[in-house]
Design a protein around this nucleic acid. Structure first.
Length: 616
DNA sequence: GGGCATTGTCATTGA
DNA sequence: TTTCAATGACAATGC
């Protein structure tokens, strides 16, 4: 099963899919999720495989039980002859042989029939004594380990790692018979046994002793703090590790049960450490048999990375379910950079809710605010504005905005979201400064004289102010909706929500201001258009005037010329006229006049003058 | 510091 | 009577 799993995993890890995994992982980071999310999915698959493996193991254990019953008599005989130690010492078989010979025949003591009730320490010790009579006969429980170490000094680290199993391995080594496996009762008894703090302390003391004997060959996880009997958590992982290393001694079922009994244990760490220990173990033992024995379900994938050919399984998840990953040490928290960042990014309120924190936290908290707009809006909602606040707040003193400000300060003082911001003046000032400098940074040239950018910035600032007011009163509509919706839709929208007086007044004012703002813009636009149009008309009229003046001048000239021609023609015609004596008429005495029908008469001026005199 | 342009807002008016 | 657009007037702001 492990090989199959490795074959399944290797293509993923070594082909081009690794890039895809990394890409997905980075995307998860961007989304606020860590690599653990991805790993968890993978571990879920591994967990399923391990469950199948456990089922196979159960079947195998059932067969072993039958064999145990058959060999029960021989086991008793061995106890009577007392040849445990000699067989172990004189057999000359390496430890791996003994352990691998009966990997799953461990603590299956026939007499280990304990009720489900809790066991006392004395009872457990008695139980151990009954289980390992030889050890009891020679020494106490603590000395049993020493004996084991003395018997197999080269493999002492193995024995150390499996302190309780080491106890159980003694009869196993002397009597490599498949002992019966009373699964539920036995597991329950082991769980209770290992959960006893006295026993844990005792085992820790034994581990201390064995470490001294082996010259500090013990794995690194058994740090001095582990030796501290008062340290409640660390002894248990040791036991768990022991159980995992000697999975046949403490079957996976029990390990699971044990893990459930101690959810606070951090098994992953120990798994990792076990991974590091694997090569050392491999130097002393046959890797195949050893891994089958000591890494049945745990350490699988990581062991394979250490070139151990025992890739049996993925059972790591049996011990360490990723979601159930328990407490971290501070160093672990620091190492979890993606998740750490994610957590901090997703908990700004926690940061901001700690105004009394030290400067470092506070400064960082400011950057974790959900949005500058939100914080600024929060600032707006409170009284006690600074000058900078008022500058940003309102350019219209005496307008309704100040009233709203007072109103907001009353209505939103107890708001949990706003309150922390109000008590962070430095942060607020920082945000305000940031908000003021940001537009310049956006344009890239703070001294930009372009009017469009300035207009845009102003418009955004004004709009955001309306949005701030709306949010301050928790208006369930957007400013755009309030302003742009038709009257019917607006009224319908308002009727669907129950708003208080302040909210209604604010909505009405926002709508009025927004409408009036647009109207003013349109009005000014129309005004400018009218001015432009009038200027165009003026130009047109000026052109017309010039054209008319030119035409008038032209007409005057033509008229003058026509008159001159007419005068010339008159004199010419008048000069051709002769009286009865053949003499020309004097222009002073006669004139030519034309009637309406075109007839021309020569009229004497004198007569005319005389007739006028006569008429007068 | 004053002038100018732009913009938002208020008050008023008329449709 | 209410609503809304239009507009004059004022103030704030930035250049």
């Amino acid at each position: 099963a492990s090989n199959t799993e490795m074959r399944c995993l290797r293509p993923l890890r070594h082909s081009g899919d690794i890039d895809l995994i990394d890409i997905l992982w980075r995307q998860d980071i961007d989304l606020g999720a860590g690599r653990e999310v991805f790993d968890y999915c993978q571990r879920q698959k591994e967990h399923e495989l391990q469950q199948q493996r456990e089922q196979e193991e159960d079947k195998r254990l059932q067969q072993q039980r039958e064999q145990e019953k058959a060999l029960l008599a021989q086991l008793q005989l061995d106890e009577e002859t007392g040849e445990f130690v000699p067989r172990l010492a004189t057999s000359g078989q390496p430890l791996q042989t003994a352990t691998s010979a009966a990997p799953s025949q461990v603590i299956q003591d026939v007499s280990f029939t304990v009720d489900g009730d809790a066991l006392s320490f004395d009872e457990c010790m008695q139980l151990l004594a009954e289980t390992f009579p030889l050890v009891e006969a020679t020494e106490t429980t603590s000395s049993c380990l020493d004996a084991a170490v003395a018997l197999a000094p080269n493999s002492s680290h193995i024995m150390m790692k499996s302190d309780p199993p080491a106890l159980t391995q003694l009869p196993l080594l002397t009597a490599p018979l498949p002992s019966q496996r009373t699964s539920p009762d036995l597991e329950q008894a082991w769980m209770e046994l290992l959960s006893l703090p006295e026993l844990q302390q005792c085992l820790n003391m034994q581990m201390e002793d064995t470490r001294e004997l082996t010259g500090g060959y013990l794995p690194t996880n058994t740090t001095p703090e582990v030796q501290d009997p008062n340290y409640s958590f660390y002894p248990l992982p040791n036991l768990e590790e022991v159980a995992s290393n000697t999975a046949d001694v403490c079957p996976p079922e029990f390990i699971n049960t044990f893990e459930e009994s101690f959810p606070n244990i951090a098994p992953l760490d120990h798994l990792n450490q076990m991974t590091l220990k694997a090569p050392d173990l491999n130097t002393h033992f046959s890797a195949d048999t050893f891994c089958d024995i000591f890494y049945p379900d745990v350490v699988n994938t990581k062991v394979t990375s250490v070139t151990l050919p025992c890739g049996q399984g993925n059972g790591g998840n049996s011990l360490a379910e990723i979601p159930n990953k328990p407490t971290f040490t501070p160093m672990e928290l620091q190492d979890l950079s993606p998740g750490d960042t994610f957590d901090r990014d997703n908990k700004p309120e926690i940061m901001t809710e700690c105004p009394d924190s030290d400067s470092g936290v506070s400064v960082e908290a400011s950057s974790y605010s959900s949005s500058p707009e939100k914080s600024m809006y929060g600032d707006r909602s409170f009284g006690g504005y600074s000058d900078s606040d008022m500058d940003e707040m309102d350019s219209n003193p005496g307008s309704a905005q100040s009233d709203y400000s007072e109103m907001f300060s009353l209505s939103f003082q107890p708001d949990g979201l706003q309150t922390p911001l109000s008590v962070l003046p430095q942060q607020r000032d920082k945000e305000l400064k940031h908000g003021k400098t940001e537009p310049d940074d956006e344009t890239g040239h703070s001294e930009s004289p372009f009017t469009k950018d300035k207009k845009r910035r102003r418009s955004e600032k004004r709009l955001s102010r309306d949005e701030q007011r709306a949010k301050a009163l928790q208006i369930p509509f957007t400013v755009d909706m309030i302003i742009d919706l038709p009257v019917d839709d607006f009224n319908e929208m308002m009727s669907k929500h129950q708003l208080n007086e302040a909210q209604l007044a604010l909505v009405r004012d926002i709508r009025r201001r927004g409408k009036n703002k647009v109207a003013a813009q349109n009005c000014r636009k129309r005004k400018m258009e009218n001015i432009t149009e009038l200027e165009y008309d003026l130009d047109s009229l000026k052109e017309e005037k010039e054209r008319l003046q030119t035409e008038k001048t032209k007409n005057d000239s033509s008229l003058r010329k026509t008159k001159q021609q007419l005068n010339t023609l008159y004199l010419e015609v008048f000069g051709l006229l002769r009286d009865e004596e053949g003499k020309p008429y004097s222009p002073l005495e006669y004139s030519l006049q034309q009637t309406t029908d075109g007839t021309v008469f020569l009229v004497p001026r004198i007569k005319k003058t005389l007739s006028k005199k006569k008429d007068s």
